[in-house]
Nucleic acid binder design. Sequence first.
DNA 1: GAACGTACCGGAGGCCCTTCCGTTTAGCAA
DNA 2: TTGCTAAACGGAAGGGCCTCCGGTACGTTC
Lengths: 193, 193
Amino acid sequence: MTDLPQQPPTPPRATRSDARTNRARVLAAASEALAESANASLTSIAKRAGVGVGTLYRHFPTREALIVELYHQEIQKVIDLAHDLAATRPPLEALRAWFQEVARYGQLKYGVAEVIHAATNGGLDDEHYGPFLGAIGALLDAGAAEGTLKAGTDPEDVLLQLSVLWRIPPGPGAADRAARILDLVTDGLRVRT
Amino acid sequence: MTDLPQQPPTPPRATRSDARTNRARVLAAASEALAESANASLTSIAKRAGVGVGTLYRHFPTREALIVELYHQEIQKVIDLAHDLAATRPPLEALRAWFQEVARYGQLKYGVAEVIHAATNGGLDDEHYGPFLGAIGALLDAGAAEGTLKAGTDPEDVLLQLSVLWRIPPGPGAADRAARILDLVTDGLRVRT
DNA sequence: GAACGTACCGGAGGCCCTTCCGTTTAGCAA
DNA sequence: TTGCTAAACGGAAGGGCCTCCGGTACGTTC
């Protein structure tokens, strides 16, 4: 159970330099291409990056993996926010506020959406998935400690419920609908008096 | 509101006979192919039916449309069940029982799953979507009348929440997980005392 | 039963996803 | 410098999705 930060034991060799630059070029190209059209093809991104498709796939096995990497920072912000809220606000309020933020981020860009999607598809490495679950767990635990939220809820179940947000068809009523659904989810998590 | 069976006013022309038989052949081929492998390609189904891909697409614009047609009867059963339960059982119990049934059907075959998916994707004609919403509405209304379920919940929102069930990765724990999530959803729909 | 308009057919074509493997090259060691 | 080797590259290949349009044949009308 020791969890101290220790030097990794110098793995056989480091990443080759061309691999690093290619990876960066793909990310840059993806950033541009996705800004122009949210559903740009991976083929076109590879071409734009001046790289073979194989190379793109080697670095990012799935479309989600690529997007998740792109929105890495925003995802981290959402995760951090959960811990902040859990620590500084009444649990129920914290949960509500965080849900709203998740919905907002997800609708705006869609890095968070992809994490959730990738997560529910089971195909995500722990680098983002774990912390995201941790964020939810922190909110749930705070509420459980206070007695307003059910104890023992599985964060993964909540994550799955949140994934519904990205399936709301876009349009005028979308925000309202998201709010309604979040209310339902929230009430489902609360302790019944 | 008259609902009498009346002669349709002879629309310009009837469907051509070859169209009807082709449609039937596609359905038959799809039934076989999907029994063998749940993700048989539309191309292969068309080939199996001895029909061009174009023909398949003309009759069933999307994969969901095809599957929904195949499981037409099972879907109808689920819809009927909702009305039965709403009429004969205490609302909360009815809701729970129906949710379980939906989960079961969805995991078994997956006609219902496709309806829900198609519905949330907005691409479904009213023939199945409307009744399905009506079924949910009946259950919600019964509960609202009794005072155990929130009044004014949008059936579409509930449908969307149910769609989560089909994203549970299959495996040993899947059934338990579905049950847990259905409990959360149910509690979200109940009136808070 | 012949002729015609149109509903319907079929599959080629364009695009995309994903894998696989022969070729290239970075980085280390002599 | 020169070799060497494994890491990384690139793109061809195989398969699927969906659209589009020239051709076919059903059903009707005379």
